[in-house]
């Protein structure tokens, strides 16, 4: 192995990691606020991918300019999904909410398969590349990282500096107490779900600029999101970002040493280990 390959992989992994982190943040935020594991996360990512595909190919819009539209679609889809599928059973045991969100997964996946079939698609975007010695960095990746970072900062600003954001954190902390303080928890839960869905879709859009994809890619990314989220600690958005970077690095660096097809084995073994040894994530408090 040579040092340049290592540097190139590290950069690649780091950049991919930010996007993965953003993707997993959507899942972990929803869990943190309402203790629901959103099994419809994958199709939401897929919607992001196909939304940018349709807008750029049929309407000729620059993929990066679709971002505002995707944000709106994401928020609305999430809020509708919450009130249709979850609101009635939000206080039920896990199985109920798992199945409710999974039913949405089936519906969206089914509908998208009808519309788009399952053949692979790709976006035609090139933003040139940066050259450092023999290390090449693709422009699309840089753009994706920049957008991921900006969205993350905006999310934190929203959660910590705005009234709505603060009520989300209050509800996440203690729903009962938040309600006593006059917070309308139904709306806050709906909004949080909307934000979670929005993050999934933005990450889908960014991933679509880097890789080819199918209707089912979202579901594979959903499983990856589980790994990331557990790595960073369920319900912890900052942890998800770091988890995403770790997985991004793992995926690109380990391929220098082991065949690519072994990477998932490694990932899922790490995943199970973390669940068993540090269920609160590698940054979380050790459980008693």
């Amino acid at each position: 192995m040579n040092i340049e390959a290592l540097i190139a992989s590290t950069f690649d992994g780091l950049m991919l990691g930010f996007v993965f982190g953003l993707m997993a943040m959507g899942l972990t935020l929803i869990f943190g606020v309402m203790k629901v594991i959103n099994l419809g996360h994958g199709p939401l990512i897929a919607i992001g991918m196909f939304a940018v595909l349709v807008m750029s190919q049929s309407l000729g819009i620059n993929p990066y300019l679709t971002l505002p539209v995707i944000i709106v679609i994401g928020l609305l889809t999430g809020i509708v999904m919450y009130f249709v599928a979850l609101h009635r059973v939000i206080n039920s045991p896990e199985l109920t909410t798992l199945l409710a969100t999974f039913s949405v997964n089936m519906m969206i996946t089914g509908l998208m398969t009808v519309i788009f079939s399952t053949s692979p698609r790709g976006l035609d975007v090139t933003l040139g590349s940066l050259q450092f010695g023999r290390v090449t960095i693709l422009g699309t990746r840089v753009a994706a990282v920049v957008i991921a970072v900006v969205v993350t900062i905006a999310l934190y600003f929203f959660l910590y500096r705005t009234r709505q954001g603060k009520s989300i954190r209050a509800v996440a902390n203690n729903r009962g107490a938040a309600e006593l303080m006059g917070i309308n928890s139904s709306w806050v839960l709906g909004l949080s779900f909307g934000i979670g869905a929005m993050l999934a879709m933005i990450s889908g859009m960014l991933l679509a600029t880097m890789f080819s994809f199918t209707v089912l890619t979202g579901n594979a990314l959903e499983t990856k999101s589980f790994v990331i989220v557990v790595l960073g600690g369920l319900g912890n958005p900052t942890g998800a970002l770091f988890g995403g970077i770790i997985i991004g690095l793992l995926e690109s660096i380990t391929t220098i040493f082991i065949p690519v097809s072994w990477v998932p084995v490694l990932e899922f073994v790490v995943f199970i280990m973390i669940l068993l040894v540090r269920p609160n994530g590698i940054f979380g408090a050790r459980s008693s």
Binding site: F31, K35, I37, E94, L98, T223, F226, V227, V230, L234, P259, S261, W262, P264, V265, E267, F268, V269, F271, I272, L275, L276, P279
Partner: peptide, 21 residues
Amino acid sequence: GAYFALSTIGINEAVRAFVSN
């Protein structure tokens, strides 16, 4: 709860990935 559910998904995916290789 959710942690158990997730771990069973992880186990299945790990075994599948292992067998595939």
